[in-house]
Design a protein around this nucleic acid. Structure first.
Length: 588
RNA sequence: GGGGCCGUGGUCAAGCCUGGUUACGACGCCGGCCUGUCAAGCCGGAGAUCGCGGGUUCAAAUCCCGUCGGCCCCGCCA
């Protein structure tokens, strides 16, 4: 017999109705006589009451039940007496008076209690993920995830986009992250790569004339993980033809507003815009969190001719001196500043100079190098007030900004600077290329198919690092939600970019020949964006770990504690693939 | 690749720094009592190779070395 309602759907609107419920026995409260059962399903739970005199059969049947048994009860929805109402529950004003009770499935004693706030380790939760997923917060996360994916499809369908699937078994290409490889049985020694993104395929779809494409698609990157990074993750991948930056951005903003609405947030948000240069200069980050100010201050002028030779030298050689004013920092002791020095070093600084203003006195390790006039100027330029501290780094522009930006981000977390809210900002005008010290050559900052800004095209050969890209990132509260670009649609420009990247004609032909060939057959101008779907769900759910919005996530070492993946395979499987596993030498 | 924190009954966790009788406690579990609770309550009970391996010591959960696993961060990754 089928259920008549979900447990969480029982409410005052059903008073007097007979219902049949099927769900998991959550809590049981047995008073010897009257007994309460909370029956739970994905919609919520409802209290069911068994009166031993009115329903002796049900009372007897339920005596052997335990937590997480799957049960069926039939009963009548009744109002609770005034004194028994639980105002903390959505349906705490009613209960189900049980007539009959039936066991559908037994349960072992669960390793942990299913409850909203888990009193167990994440390790145990991941090992027993099927039980962890029964918890209401995860049920809510995945329900939200579903609503957001539906909203995405609705918005993009209405805007004329086709959802088209692209291969999961593709080929490894240079650039970007490390690939996950899949060995070929037909061609031993050859490998497929799982896609880092469908980048090339979506461009080919544009060249094929599909005009507007999207896909909610799994991507794979074999790199070290973080709370906001999983080895496999989901992107909302979008590409459109005959589009310029503003078209992609406007569409993305429409989509984000729809997603905010679907998640129950105010969709009336502003999308700021800031060039990469401005973001680094003001916030020391290419993904600034605008929920708090604390902008970087440029004090190069103060230190330029000062007695502190290290900074004076930096300024003389074209560098800058950047400072962060920290209210409350005047009370900090030496050890706190030492820790911040470590933070600054992690962020690339050679060192950190601090200065604090407390009880009318300036204290700083470099105070003895500065005359009173310089200190006064520093105080007035930074609007330094009693109780503040200054954190100061001198270096070339980008490393100096990024180091102070690292301090800003670090202190924002420990000092809880961020206010509530959703602060979106587009970061634009990224450098097309950047220097990769390890590789000893240029690499694409976004990817090698990104179009340079037209006005910078001439510098591609002469001053490549000054070339800006038609690329843009969408940042929300300091988290990068995604990024995209207008692509190169002329094979001649593509060849010049490959050349700037140090990819020779032969290599380009071997790895990307199909793209270059496609570009030569009439490629429309096109561009797009890829948004991190897991991150969007995480942000809109107000969570801070991707693992809480993915049904079956992996650990920071890319393993699945439930299935124990990755695992070994049989010798026969390896032989079929022509693969031999060799022991890794120590120290490698 | 590097740094930090952690691993003790089914679960969470104290003890570890300063080595020494039966390893504190809570939740859960089992038994009993209880007719209005909602993390029900009260009484009683069972349950632990202290992640694994080695070392130091008369003696190791505790100190040392290695290793495996989890979390956070840097590098890496968009």
């Amino acid at each position: 017999m089928r259920r008549t309602h979900r447990c969480g759907e029982i409410s005052g609107e059903l008073l007097g109705q007979d219902v049949r419920l099927q769900g998991w026995l959550w809590h049981e409260r047995d008073f010897g006589g009257v007994k309460f059962l909370d029956i739970r399903d994905r919609a919520g739970f409802v209290q069911c009451v068994i009166d031993p005199t009115a329903a002796p059969g049900a009372h007897a049947a339920s005596t052997e039940w335990g937590a997480e048994f799957v049960v069926e009860i039939e009963g009548t929805v009744i109002a609770r007496e005034e004194r028994n109402v639980n105002p903390d529950l959505p349906n705490g004003d009613v209960e189900v008076q049980v007539h009959t009770a039936r066991l559908l499935s037994r349960s072992e004693t669960p390793p942990f209690v299913i409850e909203d706030e888990p009193r167990t380790s994440e390790e145990t939760r991941l090992r027993e993920r099927f039980l962890d997923l029964r918890r209401a917060p995860l049920q809510r996360s995945l329900a939200l995830r579903h609503r957001l994916s539906m909203a995405t499809r609705n918005v993009l369908d209405a805007a004329g986009f086709y959802e088209i699937e692209t291969p999961m078994l593709t080929r490894s290409t240079p650039e970007g992250a490390r690939d996950y490889l899949v060995p070929s049985r037909e061609a031993p020694g050859s490998f497929y790569a799982l896609p880092q993104s469908p980048q090339l395929f979506k461009q080919l779809l544009m060249i094929s004339g599909f005009d507007r494409y999207f896909q909610i698609v799994r991507c794979f990157r074999d790199e070290d993980l973080r709370a906001d990074r999983q080895p496999e993750f989901t992107q909302i991948d979008i590409e459109m033809s005959f589009a310029e930056i503003q078209d992609v951005r406007a569409l993305t903003e429409d989509l984000m507003r729809a997603l905010l609405e679907a998640a129950g947030h105010d969709p009336d948000v502003e999308f700021g815009e800031m060039s990469f240069r401005e973001a680094v200069d003001r916030f020391g980050s290419d993904r600034p969190d605008l929920r708090y100010g604390r902008e970087l201050l440029d004090v190069s002028g103060v230190f330029g001719g000062s007695g502190f030779k290290a900074f004076a030298g930096v300024v003389a050689s074209g560098g800058v001196v950047k400072a962060l004013r920290v209210p409350g920092g005047g009370a900090w002791g030496r050890s706190r500043f030492d820790k911040l020095t470590d933070v600054a070093r992690d962020a690339g600084a050679k060192g950190l100079v601090w200065m604090k203003f407390s009880e009318g006195e300036i204290a700083s390790p470099i105070a003895k190098f500065l005359d009173a006039e310089t200190i006064d100027e520093l105080k007035s330029q930074t609007k330094l007030e009693e109780g503040d501290a200054l954190l100061i780094v001198g270096d070339q522009w980008e490393p100096a900004c990024m180091a102070v930006g690292g301090l800003r981000t670090h202190l924002a977390r420990s000092e809880e600077w961020a206010a509530d809210g959703m602060r979106f900002v587009w970061i634009t005008e990224f450098p097309l290329l950047e220097e990769n010290v390890e590789a000893g050559r240029m690499v694409a900052r976004h990817h090698p198919f990104t179009s340079p800004m037209v006005e910078d095209l001439d510098k591609l050969e002469t001053e490549p690092l000054a070339v800006r890209a038609q690329a843009y990132d969408l940042v929300l509260n300091g988290i990068e939600l995604g990024g995209g670009s207008i692509r190169i649609h002329e094979s001649e420009v593509q060849s010049r970019v490959f050349s700037a990247l140090g990819i020779d004609v032969e290599e380009a032909g071997e790895k990307f020949g199909f793209l270059l060939r496609a570009l030569s057959f009439g490629a429309p101008p096109h561009g797009g964006i890829a948004l991190g779907f897991d991150r969007i769900v995480m942000m809109l759910a107000g969570l801070d770990s991707l693992r809480d919005v993915i049904a079956f996530p992996k650990t920071t070492s890319a393993s699945d504690l439930m299935t124990n993946a990755p695992g070994g395979v049989s010798a026969a499987q390896l032989q079929e693939l022509g693969i031999e596993v060799v022991a890794r030498e120590d120290g490698e």
